[in-house]
Design a protein around this nucleic acid. Structure first.
Length: 847
DNA sequence: AGCACGCCGACT
DNA sequence: GTCGGCGTGCTC
């Protein structure tokens, strides 16, 4: 498939309206190619590449889609349908984005439609089933924007009837009696009159801030003066008024008044009295109103008021990065945890902004906390946009449009922020670049945001700074080949020493019958000691739930998931058995369904059991658990962090979540309950992941000058990896690991593409996989294709799985041809009628 | 992804 | 004899 994105500018000459234009359009569907629609003559000047149009697709569907190219070549085999409506007069997807999206579709073996689908917030997708609702902050007749007659009609329709009434787009069209109603909806959304109705909306309670502004009849200059005269003897009220005018100079620009000011601001200085403010409101001089704000405060005043100074080491590192950017586009900042990388980032961001460019700061989801956002807000104020997956769709659109309009020059965000419409990037920062959560797995595109960021920087001539305490082996390798620059920061900020790491042999303790549940005497003793000293503890156990399975002691029966080939995990709190792969859950049976015995015993342990045991063994401690189960609700994550920060809780038990980006000053002990399950994972990256995990958790121990302690429980303390963890010797770990990778032909020396064949019928899944393997071998050669093989968990959601691993050399030409071959091989199998129901998933660079 | 068209089982 | 099951193919 070849796509062109060349924008054929409609000619401004008189002949324009004679030209027949066609638009190639990206439909938000997993279709392998673009579709061509015809532009109505009279609307030739309205086509915009990157703008949205509404088209009829198939017999029944009208869809909004993105114009990818405009040209004059009528399709030969079919009659193009007309575009029904143009929504945008400026692109919502920019040219650089289209280029990037096309690269993503090619590289990750998916369709452009899938990329667009993942990229656009659904509010920009406008399907005809979408619904709109009056914006909670909208007050009739008080809108700052004039409404057209049509817009008034919709407001009328939405405000008659019960609170929170909503209309579908189709209904809006019916009310207006026109088919081109999308522009009206877009305009209403822009004016904050309506917003997209989301089904989850009831869960979303917007944060409301009380604001005040001058009543409108006082806004004119003469009126303000009269007001001063009127209040001459009320000094308290004058103070308030002065402060308001200082902040909102309505005498310079009357329109400033509409936005008003936070009520709290008027009472924030000691000489100001809240009662004076209330009196002014009561007398109708000020008026109070509510505004819905996003979770993170925008504060213009905070701008540039944070002039922290970098330590000497930080300055050196910063200068070094700058130096290397002269020659290299990509630099790795390898800094131990707690070395103060964030300050360096902030400094570099500031410089990039001063140069007039945009900045993207990527963080893994769990590291994008209120802590870091508040800190960045303080420096960058309203120029900072925040893109987080927990935000509502409307908030995401706000960031999207803010980037387009130039309102947001810096965005701090998660994986999906690589989709935002940047067109002038100067710097991208990928913090914790080794994190596997940068890789999206489930719906296509199965992209790695780090790699996409690098490509985006390449397209836009930006520099990329990768940051990590434990860089991915692939990344570090690139510093060795000289492709990436390298800057190392080895000292912890504030001279806090690295924690002391102790290995404890669980096998010995178990043999000596000294284990207290899953705790060695050493860990128990240390916990008691730290609690006595009023210090805090983090315990890491990489498995949620109470126990990974239940076992009948009499007949050996183990409950299994009915959809997947896994045992069901026991969740004691919910009193349930759950499948961690498909979400199936059931009540815990009272007796064994196989033999009727009541001897059902949990085997193994997860975070929930650790929490439970601790509550009994250390009754005086306040234990909190942090894992997927306790953080599902919207604010629970923040709550757990806050409680631990404020030392309401003493012990935090958690999964991976506790290892990332959280700084707690009072933590002096970190315990890894079971290191072995992490090391012995059947995957070539197991050692790397283990090393990263251990070093990252250890980094949580001991900050602010205190030396922390880490206890690692393992059945085999002799394993080579521990030695490197204890000495925190990344380099030694790297040298060891890179040898393995070279020897066994893994990344960074080879590129891996994993194909998964899925079928409801086990036999057909196997047959299809064998057939596909043969097709692949024919095209790529025997040595490039491994498998097929049933994965460890060979059945998920009722689909039997077969995996084929393809190893390719990293040369671009090889890769390009190989991908074409892979697609051809898949199609060759798909076309056989026996395998019509087989599904094929390609994962490029799997993690 | 949807949605229509089409060919085989249990019902008025 | 039909209604409807979902398997297959198409949508500019």
């Amino acid at each position: 498939m070849s796509l062109t994105f060349d924008f054929v500018q409609p000619q401004p000459e008189a002949a324009t309206d004679r030209v027949t234009l066609f638009a190639d359009v990206i439909l938000p569907l997993p279709l392998p190619k673009l579709y061509t629609y015809r532009v109505p003559y009279e609307l030739n000047d309205q086509v915009v590449v990157g703008g949205r149009v509404i088209v009829q697709f198939g017999a029944k569907k009208t869809l909004s889609c993105i114009v990818a190219a405009v040209h004059e070549n009528p399709p030969k085999e079919y009659q193009a349908k007309y575009i029904l409506e143009f929504i945008d007069d400026a692109p919502v997807v920019t040219q650089p984005q289209l280029k990037l999206f096309r690269w993503m579709a090619d590289y990750y073996l998916c369709t452009l439609g899938e990329v667009i689908n993942a990229a656009l917030p659904s509010a920009l997708k406008l399907s005809s089933e979408s619904r709109v609702q009056l914006h909670p902050a909208f007050v009739r007749d008080e809108s700052p924007y004039p409404l057209s007659e049509q817009e008034e009609k919709i407001v009328e329709a939405l405000s008659t009837g019960e609170e929170g009434k909503s209309l579908t787009f189709t209904e809006v069209g019916e009310i207006l009696g026109i088919t081109s109603f999308h522009k009206v909806i877009k305009s209403l959304m822009q004016k904050d009159v309506v917003f997209l109705f989301e089904h989850l909306q009831d869960k979303y309670s917007p944060k409301v801030v009380k604001k005040v502004r001058l009543a409108h009849h006082y806004v004119a200059e003469a009126a303000v003066e009269a007001l001063f005269a009127q209040l001459a003897s009320r000094s308290k009220q004058l103070d308030v008024l002065m402060r308001y005018l200082q902040k909102v100079p309505v005498y310079q620009n009357e329109h400033l008044n509409h936005q008003g000011i936070e009520k709290a601001y008027l009472t924030s200085a000691p000489h100001l009295s809240p009662s004076a403010v209330n009196t002014l409101i009561k007398n109708g001089i000020l008026e109070q109103f509510d505004v819905i704000v996003s979770r993170f405060p925008l504060d213009d005043a905070a701008e540039a008021n944070m002039h922290f100074t970098l330590s000497e080491a930080q300055q050196t590192a910063r200068d070094d990065v700058m130096q290397q950017f002269q020659e290299k586009d990509i630099v790795l900042l390898h800094g131990v945890t707690g070395a103060g990388k964030t300050e360096i980032y902030i400094d570099l961001i500031r410089q990039a902004l001063d140069g007039g460019g945009q900045v993207l700061y990527l963080l893994p989801e769990i590291a994008l906390t209120a802590q870091i956002v508040t800190r960045l807000m303080r420096v960058f104020g309203s120029r900072l946009g925040v893109y987080h997956s927990k935000f509502s769709d409307n908030e995401r659109v706000e960031v999207w449009n803010g980037v387009l309009s130039g309102r947001f020059q810096v965005v701090v965000g998660v994986r999906s922020s690589v989709f935002l419409p940047f067109d002038n990037l100067a710097l991208i920062i990928v913090d914790e670049e080794h994190e596997s959560s940068y890789k999206q797995y489930d719906p296509a595109p199965r992209y790695n945001a780090r790699e996409v960021a690098l490509m985006m920087a390449n397209f836009q001539g930006a520099r990329t700074l990768l940051g990590s305490a434990t860089p991915a082996v692939e990344t570090y390798y690139q510093t060795r080949t000289g492709r990436y620059g390298l800057v190392s920061l080895t000292k912890r900020f504030g001279e806090a020493g690295l924690p002391e790491i102790e290995l404890v042999d669980t096998r010995k303790s178990r043999e000596a019958k000294k284990m207290h549940n899953h705790f060695t005497p050493e860990l128990m003793l240390e916990m008691e000691r730290k609690l006595g000293a009023k210090e805090q503890i983090i315990l890491f156990q990489n498995r949620r739930g109470y126990s990974p399975f239940i076992n009948c002691l009499d007949c050996g029966w183990i409950p299994k998931c009915q959809n997947c080939a896994v045992s069901l995990s026991y969740h004691k709190h919910a009193h349930e058995l759950r499948c961690h792969y498909c979400g199936y859950h059931d009540r815990l049976p009272v007796e064994c369904p196989a033999c009727g015995s009541r001897n059902l015993k949990p085997v193994g342990f997860g975070t929930e059991k650790i929490e439970d045991d601790l509550k009994i063994m250390l009754p005086e401690a306040n234990v909190q658990r942090m894992d997927l189960d306790t953080t599902r609700a919207k604010n629970s994550y923040q709550q757990i962090i806050a409680d631990f920060e404020n030392q309401v809780t003493n012990v935090l038990v958690g999964t991976q979540m506790v290892t990332k980006g959280l700084d707690f000053a009072n933590v002096s002990l970190v315990g890894i309950i079971n290191a072995d399950s992490i090391i012995h994972y059947p995957d070539f990256r197991a050692h790397e992941r283990a090393f990263q995990m251990f070093v990252q958790v250890s980094g949580r121990a001991g900050r602010k000058g205190k030396k922390g302690k880490v206890i690692i429980q393992t059945g085999d303390p002799q394993q080579v990896i521990f030695d490197k963890v204890i000495r925190n010797d990344y380099l030694e770990f790297y040298e060891y690991e890179i040898l393995q990778r070279r020897e066994h032909g893994y990344p960074p020396f080879m590129r891996i593409i994993r194909l998964t064949v899925k079928h409801m019928d086990q036999h057909l899944a196997e047959r299809a996989a064998i057939l596909l393997t043969n097709e692949l071998v024919d095209r790529l050669g025997r040595e490039a294709v491994l498998g097929p093989e049933a994965p460890y968990i060979f059945r998920i959601r009722n689909f039997f799985l077969q995996e084929i691993t393809i190893k390719l050399s990293r040369e671009h030409t090889v890769l390009k041809q190989a991908k074409a071959d892979i697609l051809a091989a898949i199609n060759a199998v798909k076309d056989q009628k026996d395998y019509k129901q087989a599904r094929f998933v390609a994962d490029v660079d799997p993690m």
